[in-house]
């Protein structure tokens, strides 16, 4: 009985933590994002940045090109074009080969002020 009481208390606190977390995060996610995916499963972010050498990740906010440093063969940051929104798959990361294909198809354009460097905010 004593153990049951502890279990119920633990579950109650757990439920409180989950709801509190959902509430605070839902609040911060409430901002309407202008970068909605045009097609399901396609990229939702407006930018792609080269965070590691030949390793690219999507970025929701515009990369600050002042944070581009070092040397690389590809651009530090790219803007996703409107056609890119319908064609670039939504992935956690992209390879340099994929980026080259997207640039060749005009799905990506180098971000203004970007250089051949790494994005290190």
């Amino acid at each position: 009985m004593k153990n049951l009481h502890k279990l119920v208390l633990g579950l109650m606190v757990g439920a409180m933590a989950i709801s509190f977390s959902a509430f605070t995060n839902a609040h911060s996610n409430h901002i309407i994002r202008p970068n909605k995916a045009v097609k399901a499963g396609m990229i939702t972010d407006n930018y792609i940045a080269q965070t590691t050498l030949n390793g690219f990740v999507p970025e929701s906010s515009a990369p600050v090109t002042d944070d581009c440093s070092g040397t690389a063969t590809l651009q530090c940051a790219y803007d996703v074009t409107s056609s890119g929104k319908s064609n670039i798959p939504n992935q956690a990361s992209y390879t340099s080969a994929e980026i080259n294909t997207y640039v060749a198809n005009d799905w990506l354009t180098p971000a203004p002020g970007s250089s051949k460097a790494l994005y290190q905010p």
Binding site: V13, G14, M16, A17, I18, F20, S21, A22, N25
Partner: peptide
């Protein structure tokens, strides 16, 4: 509370 909150 701490771990469930941060995990969620």
């Amino acid at each position: 509370f701490l771990f469930l909150y941060t995990a969620c």
